[in-house]
Structures are given as structure tokens and as C-alpha cells.
Amino acid sequence: MSAPLMQATGLTLNFGRIRALDEVDIAIWPGEVVAIVGESGSGKSTLLRVLSGQAQADAGQVFYDGQDVGAMTEAGRRRLLRAEWGFVHQNPRDGLRMTVSAGGNIGERLMAQGNRHYGNIRKAATAWLQKVEIEVDRLDDLPRTFSGGMQQRLQIARTLVTEPRLVFMDEPTGGLDVSVQARLLDLIRALVAELGLAVLIVTHDIAAARLLAHRIVVMRHGRVVEEGLTDRVLDDPQHPYTQLLVTSVLMA
């Protein structure tokens, strides 16, 4: 088996008396979708922030492609965040520039990588708008004129335009209504398959996890209580908390 794309061992992080992460080990292989599920406050988002270098753990190490992320310079980490990683926020307002047009939002990562050809940037932005099913004539509109679902799709286009190898998603379907969620999940699933991305997705939506993820990691109180293949974890949960989580999903 090939080496993991990202591997973390013994991640521990305390916020004062609260233990947000407790000896977390996690690994993700190229092209794999891993869902992190758990209740609010279980440390899911914190884990994502630590893995993506936006927060520093008290103990433990994160390796990306064999390099120790904690030992990198800030310039190196930012280069990774710009080129090889992507981060999709729960609230599109955190990930988008609301005063910049849709085209500018999509083009930003290209320009940050040194692309200086207006025509090419625009072509790429147009192509990506089509990919995320936004009408092409909205290219010069500001994101604030977009609906919530469109903003989220725009954020995804903006993140994936540089074809990163690893994408972090923090509750990407949070705050959207169910039909929009379904469409977004479809879109993410198609893009992930097409581009062969590795995705680490944080969600408390078990249905979304079942739809997207190859593997599931269940967290509680900052600890990984169970992990395994999606179907195995959801159909045959071992840990009492996972059992509770799975049975508390409402069936429509």
C-alpha cells in the first residue's frame, strides 16, 4: 500500500482546562474521502484546523507527503495552503471575498500562484462556474447577490481551481436547506471522483457522511472512539456512542 498523503500522530490540544484533542491519530490516503463525525464540541473542527496548519497542537505531529508540517516555515505552510491544499468553510462568507466578483474569487488562487494572464484566468473562472452549475453570466457579479447554496458552490470552485491534492471541508452543507444540500453533495461527490481529490470532511450529518465518505472517524470529547469503513461503522457500530449517533438519525 502507498504511503498516506497526510498522517497525524498523538495530536493533543488543551484550551485551558478543556481537552479539545486527546491523543488523536489520523491518516488519509490519496484519493480518499474521510468523514469526521461527532457531536458539537467533540473537537472535529479543531482537528481540521490543526491538520491544515491554522492552529498549533500542544503535542503530536502532522506529516504531509512525508514532511513535518509543524517544522515548516510559515512561507512553506502558506504555499501548501495556496497550492496543494484547499479549505472549504462552513460559512461561505469566511471563504469568499464578498467585495470581489465571482470571477475574481475563483481567480485569486491562480493569481497567487503567479498567473498573470487576464484572459486565461477568466477562461478558467468561466469553466469552473460551469462545473459548479452557476450560470456563466454571473461571472462579474458579487457573491453577496448569490443565494446561500450558490455561495457555497462558488467557494468550492474557488478552492478547487488550482486542483489541490487535499481538501479540508468544515460542515460544507451546514445552514443549507435539504434540497440544496443534496445538490451540493452530488456536486462534491462528482468533483472528488473526477479530480481524484483526497478530502477530509467534518460533518454531523450522518447521511452526508454515508453518501460521500469511504471511511468514517467518530470523535467524542476530543478522542477518536471509533473508525472504519463507512458501511461498517454505520451498519455495525461498535462503540456505545457511535450506536447512539447512528440510531438518533431520523428516517424520512
Binding site: R78, R82, R97, V100, S101, G103, G104, G107, E108, R109, M111, A112, Q113, R116, Y118, I121
Partner: peptide, 11 residues
């Protein structure tokens, strides 16, 4: 890291 300025020119 001056991509941001280029975004303004794009706009």
C-alpha cells in the same frame, strides 16, 4: 504574497 493586489487589478 501579492496575489491579493492582482485580484484588485482583475476587478
Amino acid at each position: 504574497d501579492y496575489g491579493l493586489m492582482q485580484v484588485r487589478l482583475y476587478e
